[in-house]
Every structure is written in C-alpha cells, then in structure tokens.
Amino acid sequence: MNQPSKSVTKNVVIKNKTGLHARPAAVFVQVANKFDSEISVQKGKQKINGKSIMGVLMLAAGQGQEVIIVADGPDAEIAVKELEKILLSDDDEKKIR
C-alpha cells in the first residue's frame, strides 16, 4: 500500500554528552539513508542534508542544543521517529554499537 508523501518536522534537543560528533553522526546518516524520504537537519540558520555525514558534522551540534529534523517523503513519519531516537540517546556510545 502506497503511503502518501508528506513532510514531518521535529525539534530535538541533543542529549548525548559529547554532542553529535563523528560516531553518532555516522549512525544518524546510516539510519537516514535507509529511508526514501528526503531528510534535512537544521541548527540555527544552517540547514544540511541529513544523509551526508559531512553535512551532519558541519552542524557541530553539542549537548543541549536544538536541531530540527525534517523528513519529506513516503516514510517521513517513521524516519523522523528513528532519527529522533538517535539524537535523544544519552548512552555512552560504546554501548550503542
């Protein structure tokens, strides 16, 4: 069954103690790439492609800072849900992998 394409937006405050650094960024991008939806992440005025690790790293999003995830496409809802989970994880990353 084809779901209609739609746009889902979610504001998320980064929980991870060291922020969205290389490892969580890699996880984020890997998950983002599973989805058909277009995904962008915005911090302040900067908006980047959520499927590009260099883009995600460019945000330099630290703990306590707010980013906006926007997904646009047939699986937008589930995409935002899963990506939010990654940003809200405050585990030591060693446990994630």
Partner: peptide, 15 residues
C-alpha cells in the same frame, strides 16, 4: 567536547 566538535565541523565544511 566543544573544540573537537567545532574542528570536525570545520574540516567537514572544507572537505
């Protein structure tokens, strides 16, 4: 964490 994140961002921006 701060300078490290900023350095990663800077490197990514250029590369």
């Amino acid at each position: 964490a701060g300078p490290h994140l900023k350095a990663l961002a800077r490197i990514s921006r250029l590369l």
